[in-house]
Design a binder for these strands. Structure first.
Lengths: 198, 198, 198, 198
DNA sequence: GATGAATGAGGCTTCATTCAT
DNA sequence: TATGAATGAAGCCTCATTCAT
């Protein structure tokens, strides 16, 4: 085997871990977590399944590592948000930056969105839920009336789902993101005004 | 065999098919489609796996049958909507009735929402997509600007996700539904006004 | 169900047993014994599987009944042959009549030919073997040299296989049968002459 | 697990694939293709079913690999035959070498002979048919009269079936093969003479 | 840093058969 | 004369995982 190894294979030196993550995320997003087997990932990389186990202890750990790498910005965003006053400007800034973060890791969020059931019993499911909870605490005023709370929740997953549910609408992706951002900002703003008057 | 069968099991009348659907939907919604095995469904019903195959040709067909039974109202709604003028009132009525339909088949829609990846390659996935497309055509004005189109899409899945994403907010379910409906109606209304002025 | 039964079904009265045999033989010959399920047979007849069990005790018994019905002529032929002197004329007559019998129940013999493995452990397998043995005892002279014995065996299954192995050769079926018969007769004749001189 | 594994099982070198083929062919020939389950093959080898799947993608592929390995000589023979003049000597030589090939892979040919129905829808079935066709084209003169064509076909499967149909005749196997070869050669010779005079 | 070989669990599905009605 | 409903056994196959090398 070693003898027949072609040049492209030798060149990729120590980046196998990264390549596994890339391929895995691609397949997870495309086919779902359960439907994607380690065999499939290995074949795409032209390695054996056992090689995956050199780099990751389990299938779940592959996902965890991807998740941890790509959602760090959200953690930072929440931490930053917690330290700000709960003004309208803060909320709008959170929404703006969240939108950017999502755009930067679209396949992962698409995956999380479309595999909620599969992910629920995985560590990433729990973690993701906690982060969403953190986000809400910053954006939602617990004393606001129910409708305004719904507006905030709606704002968040308008951003989540926006990217994928809008596939049929033909428009420049960045233009779509801007439109989504505008709607989300509107929702948060309305919610804020509502509770300010209450 | 027959001798050890207890009395409750005999004369189960003709309701096994329905019971399979009920149990299956419960498990599909709770654990996801892939994670729910036919063995599990059969055990919950105290029947053998083979009995399931008397009533349904495949696992997928169980899902299809549930889907077809529970989404008939949406089909009716779309058909009705197509024949109405595209006024604001029509759109609001559609949203109102859609909200009711969703509430009437919450577990199924939760399932569809949380298993998009798993469902994508199933017949129900395709069918569901088509129906969503139908809904949009009624609510969205294709000449409206992008932001207003996003508002309409957001309205639809604010209703979809509303029920599940709001679990942490403690409030009467019907009150939540009303709040969600209000936000959705608002979004559609804003969108309509926007494109009316354009 | 009874209420929706269409007219064609009512007309076929008491011939179900025969129809089962016909359909079963067709499918057995076409697909093989193991590959043909009772479900399939029932569907072709537009009856339920259980109905088959009203007429036959087991799957094997369907085959047995077909076999017994269609191979009676061979039994008669062997019985007749045993009472004749072992002359060349007798042998030639046996071959001639055997060829006719085969032509009259081609699907069954095709089936027996192509499903020897499946049939080996069935009652018909054993029975068929015994009959073949009976045929040989009439045609083969046990004192003949090995080559002449082979000629006789070859004559018999030249006839057996002739019908199916000759499919690619385009010619009138009856013409083919005549040709096969001629070759078989030749073989038996040569064998007889050989042992006569020995 | 590893702890209870006995010594003979460790270091089974690289021969598992070959052992699977051997056991499988034995069982296929003895019981038929459909009647032989992978469980059975695995048990004979004291391995798990899953181990079979490490070496072969499907049950059918086990058969294909056996077939390909053992019928290579026939391929060679046909190729050789095509390049020779269609003289009597060539035909006789083909028959002689074919007889040897059959003797060298008797269980496979017995299997093919007795499982025609099962094999018809498998890749090997198609392949085998093509090879037989190739053989005929060399041996049969398409302008010969039907009887002589039948003689050639008869020659071929006199050799095929010879080995198994002759089980009841007690004689040295090699002696039987010689006898079969003689009959087959005779048939081909007669056919050749016939068409030469035509 | 990775492979080859294997495992145990479990997946979906099909089959011949039974039996009360 | 047949159906409806169900069973138990078994089929092929796939999966995540392990471990010696």
């Amino acid at each position: 085997m070693g003898g027949t190894m072609d040049v492209t294979k030798q060149h990729r030196r120590g980046n196998t871990r990264q390549r596994i993550q890339d391929v895995a995320l691609g397949l997870f997003a495309e086919q779902g977590y359960e439907k994607t087997s380690l065999r499939e990932i290995a074949e795409h990389l032209d390695v054996t399944k056992a090689a995956l186990y050199y780099h990751f202890k389990t299938k779940e750990e592959i996902l965890v590592s991807i998740f941890d790498d790509l959602t760090q910005p959200i953690l930072d965003l929440i931490e930053w948000g917690r330290k700000q006053p709960h003004t309208l400007e803060t909320k709008q800034e959170i929404v703006r930056r969240y939108s950017e973060t999502l755009a930067g890791a679209a396949p992962l969020f698409r995956f999380m969105q479309e595999n909620q059931a599969a992910v629920r019993e995985l560590r990433v499911g729990e973690t993701f839920k906690e982060r969403m909870q953190g986000l809400r605490e910053i954006i939602i005023d617990p004393d606001a009336d129910l409708t305004d709370q719904v507006r905030c929740v709606s704002a968040i997953f308008t951003m989540h789902a926006g990217m994928f549910f809008l596939q049929d609408i033909t428009a420049d992706p960045e233009a779509k993101r801007k439109a989504v951002l505008e709607v989300a900002t509107d929702l948060v703003t309305q919610a804020h005004r509502g509770s300010a008057n209450a």
